[in-house]
Simulated scan of single mutants.
Amino acid sequence: MNKAVFFDVDDTLYDHLIPFRKAVYPWTEHIAHFPYEKAYHRMRYYSDMLSLEFGGAGQMEEGDSTDLMRRKRFQLALEEFDVLLTEQEAEEIQQLYLACQFDIECFDGARELILELQQKGYVVGLLTNGAEAHQWKKIRALKLDEIIPLSRIFVSGTYGIDKPDPDIFRLINERIDIPAAQCTYIGDSWRNDVIGACHADWNVIWFNHRELEQEAGITLLGDVKDYAELRAILL
């Protein structure tokens, strides 16, 4: 029976912290030892929270609600670190963020692992949360569409189902005709990736390159910090 390996995109196949740091740096460079990684995690938390509040990724392509969400996530995240932003400043950060968000490269070993898995007969695909057009820009920037069949690339906004809802994983099982027990998901987000995939009965490898603490109640196939460790588990 075929086996499948699916990857998250943001902060799993490339370093999502880099565009965030570039965008907020003009407002934080005066602060010694500013905790960019902690602030980044808070931005992602507020991004998920506000996206759900406004109707999920399927509603987040364009429009006033999307613009408000994107500004507000920076305001709320940086406020926790005593950086208070006006609406205009938050908009400037968002524009900087967009300008560098697609200047990205895969982590070392990521593309090589995808190709090796395919050569060994695995069905390899992507599952990413986000608005369809926005996430596809990242996928093309990383040139992942050149090595992964388009039929195996799933963006939550296309279907109106966001991780951690297990239904998005079940939809993939139906599309690729492979049962959950034969599927493995790799992602960095405990809430979206680990919990979502586990609730859909997939095997899960946590791409924990930020070396965070595990939460209780989940059995993982692995906890890895780079693609060398990931390859050792998968192959």
Rank of each mutant, 00 (worst) to 15 (best):
R42M: 06
H209Q: 13
G56I: 12
T219K: 14
D193K: 13
M60W: 02
L171A: 11
E92G: 01
Q118D: 06
A57M: 06
D64H: 08
E62N: 11
S65W: 02
Y185C: 04
N192K: 15
G222F: 07
I195L: 13
W202K: 11
D193P: 04
K72T: 15
L221V: 09
I93E: 02
E211W: 01
L220W: 01
I139Q: 03
L85D: 01
L115N: 12
D223L: 00
H33E: 14
L212S: 04
W202V: 07
R231D: 00
D193H: 09
Y185A: 11
L96Q: 12
D162T: 08
A32K: 15
S189P: 04
L221I: 03
L235T: 12
A181I: 11
K22F: 10
R210L: 15
Q119Y: 00
Y122S: 07
E91Q: 14
Q118W: 05
F81I: 02
H209A: 01
G187T: 07
A228T: 14
F34W: 05
R111P: 02
L212M: 10
Y122Q: 09
M43T: 12
D177K: 15
G187Y: 08
L113N: 11
G56A: 10
I178Y: 01
F54C: 09
C198K: 15
F74M: 03
Q182Y: 06
Q182F: 06
D223Q: 12
Q101H: 13
T219M: 06
P166D: 02
M69I: 02
R191K: 14
I178T: 03
E105Y: 02
D64K: 14
I176E: 04
I114Y: 02
A57H: 11
V123K: 04
E80S: 08
I218R: 08
Q59R: 15
L78F: 03
G56R: 12
R152F: 08
G63R: 10
Q101F: 11
Q95D: 07
G130M: 07
D108K: 14
W136K: 13
Y25W: 01
L142H: 05
I148R: 04
D8T: 08
F169G: 08
A57G: 14
D67Q: 12
L78H: 00
S51F: 01
L142D: 04
D162A: 09
M49E: 13
G187M: 09
W190S: 11
G63F: 04
E37D: 08
G160Y: 07
L234P: 05
D108F: 03
I153C: 09
Q95F: 02
L17E: 07
K38N: 05
L98I: 04
M49V: 13
D15N: 15
G63Q: 07
V224C: 10
F81C: 05
R170G: 00
I93Q: 02
A228P: 00
T184H: 06
Q135E: 12
W136T: 03
D8Q: 06
D165Y: 00
G58P: 03
G109F: 11
G109K: 08
V124W: 04
R191P: 00
N208F: 03
A133I: 05
P164M: 12
V224F: 08
D201K: 13
F154P: 01
L234W: 01
